[in-house]
Design a protein around this nucleic acid. Structure first.
Length: 139
DNA sequence: GCCAACGTTGGC
DNA sequence: GCCAACGTTGGC
């Protein structure tokens, strides 16, 4: 199983919006970046991901799960763009902020820190465990 | 609100 | 195929 990070502006699509979709989940549409799309192409059912709020909040706020593998993005007719579906699993007890992450030497190589603009990122197992611990939730 | 980083587009 | 111009993202 692989781990990922999904970034969203809360004003566009927030953790609460995601939770409201329940176990059915929702497609992670609107991605118009090849690297992000390529990451989604590699996802499998059951892969876990962090849900990150960008901009004002800048924090990982919960855990999601991939519930549908890659398919065409329904928000465009352009066949280049595809997306997966994800559903909320559980919120973090304590959101883990970007500042918290930057203070951790073991997280210095995270994509989140070094490629701030990539909206769908891979996360290593070590990073996953560390951030879950910081967020007060089981991995 | 500003600016740096980065990706994409389009002219040559 | 290169590169300049432009637009967007996201941290500060």
């Amino acid at each position: 199983m692989a781990y990922w990070l999904f970034k969203s502006e809360p004003s566009t699509w927030s953790w609460d919006d995601q939770v409201a979709k329940g176990d059915t989940g929702e497609e992670w549409d609107g991605v118009r970046n090849y690297q992000a799309r390529n990451n989604m192409r590699q996802m499998e059912i059951g892969d876990r991901g962090f849900f990150y709020h960008s901009q004002k909040e800048k924090a990982v706020v919960g855990i999601v799960e991939v519930c549908a593998t890659v398919h065409p993005d329904s928000t465009t007719d352009d066949p280049r763009w595809e997306c997966v579906d994800i559903r909320a699993v559980r919120p973090f007890e304590t959101p883990v902020t970007l500042g918290d992450i930057k203070e951790m030497p073991t997280l210095a190589d995270m994509v989140l820190v070094n490629n701030t603009r990539l909206s769908v990122q891979p996360v290593t197992e070590a990073e996953w465990k560390t951030i879950c611990e910081m967020g007060g939730t089981a991995p």
